[in-house]
Design a binder for these strands. Sequence first.
DNA 1: CGTAATGGTAAAGAGTTGTCAACGCTGTAA
DNA 2: TTACAGCGTTGACAACTCTTTACCATTACG
Lengths: 226, 226
Amino acid sequence: MPRVLIVEDDASMAVALKDGFEYEGYAVTVAKDGAAGLRLASEATPDLMILDVMLPKMSGLDVCRQIRSDGHKLPIIMLTSRGQEIDKVLGLKLGADDYITKPFGFLELMARVEALLRRSNGRNDAAESYQFGNVSVNFRKSEVQKNGESVDLSPREFRLLKFLIEHRGEVISRDQLMESVWDYENAPLTRTVDMHMAKLRRKIEERPNEPAWLVTVHRVGYKFTG
Amino acid sequence: MPRVLIVEDDASMAVALKDGFEYEGYAVTVAKDGAAGLRLASEATPDLMILDVMLPKMSGLDVCRQIRSDGHKLPIIMLTSRGQEIDKVLGLKLGADDYITKPFGFLELMARVEALLRRSNGRNDAAESYQFGNVSVNFRKSEVQKNGESVDLSPREFRLLKFLIEHRGEVISRDQLMESVWDYENAPLTRTVDMHMAKLRRKIEERPNEPAWLVTVHRVGYKFTG
DNA sequence: CGTAATGGTAAAGAGTTGTCAACGCTGTAA
DNA sequence: TTACAGCGTTGACAACTCTTTACCATTACG
């Protein structure tokens, strides 16, 4: 179920869009201003963003530019009002993938959404890279850098790190990790997970003894504090 | 220099577009009907296609559908006339990436073209040659030079290298290579890929034992670090 | 303070990759 | 036709990498 992030300050418009997309089977997140939209663009991991150009404080164009300069490839459709013709070209130049002029028919918007999602299928469902502290992780290239220097992770280590990042903030049990990262149905009682967590810590933590990112939650599991 | 394929039966329109794109620094191929468009879509290796919906014999919609069912991911922009509103949605559903209604401003078309090309960047760019380290690869001539001296690659080796360059940075599994470079549906479990990778390394790498470009990713595959 | 959980280290274990030599195929020349 | 050369493929095996286990030290919690 793809997720759509709607950034729109006009409440009635936002609700209408939300209902429409939910009716079509999408998951929906709504943001009321640019700052919230920017934050949710990474936190809610949407597959597509619908962005009003006219927003209080931070304009949609700024949001768009900011997202692109973060390296996100999230498909973006801009909503413009009639009379903002200039914005069309400008928006596309700033990295939007499409725009549509109010008033518009919902079906037309849907068609554009589907075209974009089809296009980006399998590519940008996840952000291409992720940063925390002085570590940066590039998922497409399977590369990790710490302080600008490349760090070698084994495939398992990388998969573990990726999973933790995708579930940042959540406490993950060893069983869950065994299932998701190791594909083990029933986890045998071993120290495998701990082992790998220790290795990860040594490679990416500043002080592996007092981990800042890969935190142990006693008797439960681990947590990545992104 | 990206190549645009224009499929348009109206000669004056075709010429206008051709001139416009050439002025903007694009290479242009023009087709006058759907059949020619279909053929040139693969033969001319365009980076983007501009497709009139109204064409003699085979409609633009048919061309679009055919191209997609061939598995092409070529970005397509459809040209519709006012009053063909239904075609818009239909066209997008059939796999077009965008449409624009006649009459339109050339700048708006350009903006859409650039947005699409930016989106698909790194995938369908058919650069003529590629350099890395002191190696240079010419795709058109199928020639490879190392330190200025010609290096002989067998056809398979060349195809492998080309594929790796096209997917530079990404880790490619042996299965993927078997499928894309060898056209094997289900890859038998052999050392074929490794063998060829080793040959490539001997021919291209400075120190084949410690490859700088053709890197092994244990348990996953290979990666070209361009 | 005692018990259980976790961290660290090293070595065994399992699986993957690099390399070699041999084989088959295709096209070319004698 | 036969011999030859080049390419692509395959199986064998050694060398290597990553993963797991074992063991003990350390830490957290009731």
